[in-house]
């Protein structure tokens, strides 16, 4: 708040005119960005809700005119046993992937504090390479590595006597398929979360850590009682972002399964996409997407509140 107050107080001194006049400048500054965000994100969100209350198939698409059906789409969707499976599957997938991402990233970030400088540089370089890898590229790589015939992973697992993985198709069994999807997702998510946490760890005030270690706190006590609480906002951010990304997962499922995933592999976004663009039931697809957004709003409510609070303080 300090900066804002200073500017505002000095405003009249710096600007010649004495009279307090309405300041148009901040509005001029935010207008272009607001228009873009509102037009491309907020308006379609409203349109999504509106669509979910319509029957909107191929004929309606051509006529640009849907038929109002009230909450029918939601009734149909929620009563659909496949949909219920999809919700549970998406939630389980999200919990597993977010947990794995945060745990591995925290461990790697802490490890990065302990290694010697050259190793830290190498590790950081590797993370950045992975981070920069486009998700479609990553999916293609892992698809190749998990290939049933010539994939290096089947070879390694067989050599390491984990079992006989020769000609093992990972996607025959959806549970194993989701293990592959989890590997691809977590591998891709680790760099951003790790680098964010590492940078945040470097910003923990030194004197606090010194004091704790002088007082004889064990390293894990320092982490749990000093570092973790200070990093809480950052943990909140990365956890929420991971939740949003993992709950809305699409590419990893859709492209990994060659754009033809069976219903055993449907997660929220894939199911919504299928209903809309696969069987041209845009109204039903929109209803699924609305449910997806509602679930996310509930899940990320605390993050939004927290962020708003910090925004007010600054």
């Amino acid at each position: 708040m300090g900066a804002a107050i200073t500017t505002r107080d000095l405003g009249p001194v710096l600007h010649r005119p004495r009279r307090r006049r309405f300041n148009h400048l901040p509005y001029a500054l935010i207008t272009p960005a607001s228009l873009a965000m509102f037009g491309i994100l907020a308006f379609p969100l409203g349109m999504l809700v509106w669509l979910s209350l319509q029957h909107y198939g191929l004929r309606e698409l051509i006529a640009h005119q849907g038929t109002w059906v009230g909450l029918d789409n939601f009734r149909v969707t929620i009563a659909d046993p496949l949909f219920q499976q999809v919700v549970v599957r998406s939630l389980l997938f999200t919990v597993a992937n977010v947990a794995l991402t945060i745990i591995f990233s925290t461990l790697i970030a802490l490890l990065m504090l302990k290694v010697s400088r050259p190793v830290r540089t190498i590790l950081m370089g590797g993370l950045i390479f992975v981070w920069a890898t486009p998700v479609i590229v990553a999916i293609d790589i892992w698809q190749w590595m998990f290939d049933y015939e010539f994939g290096v992973i089947n070879y390694l697992l067989t050599q390491l006597h984990v079992g006989n993985f020769i000609h093992h198709n990972w996607f025959d069994d959806p549970l194993q398929g989701f293990i592959v999807i989890t590997v691809v997702t977590v591998w891709g998510a680790i760099p951003f979360v790790t680098i964010t946490l590492f940078a945040a760890l470097l910003q923990v005030p030194d004197d606090v850590l010194e004091a704790a270690s002088i007082d004889g706190a064990r390293p894990w006590q320092i982490f749990w009682n000093v570092t973790a609480p200070i990093l809480k906002p950052i943990f909140l951010i990365v956890t929420s972002l991971s939740t949003i990304w993992d709950f809305g997962i699409f590419n990893q499922v859709y492209v990994l399964l060659n754009q033809r995933p069976s219903s055993d592999y449907f997660v929220m976004a894939v199911y919504s996409y299928r209903e809309s663009f696969g069987v041209t039931q845009y109204g039903l697809g929109a209803a699924i997407a609305v449910v997806m957004v509602l679930i996310l709003i509930v899940v990320t409510f605390f993050y939004v509140r927290q962020t708003l609070q910090t925004a007010e303080i600054t």
């Binding site: 907020a42 349109m47 709950f247 919504s272 809309s276 997407a289 609305v290 997806m292």
Partner: peptide, 12 residues
């Protein structure tokens, strides 16, 4: 708007 998953907005 950051909370809104882009995948949900594809249709509109």
């Amino acid at each position: 708007v950051q909370m809104v998953p882009l995948n949900a907005l594809i249709i509109p």
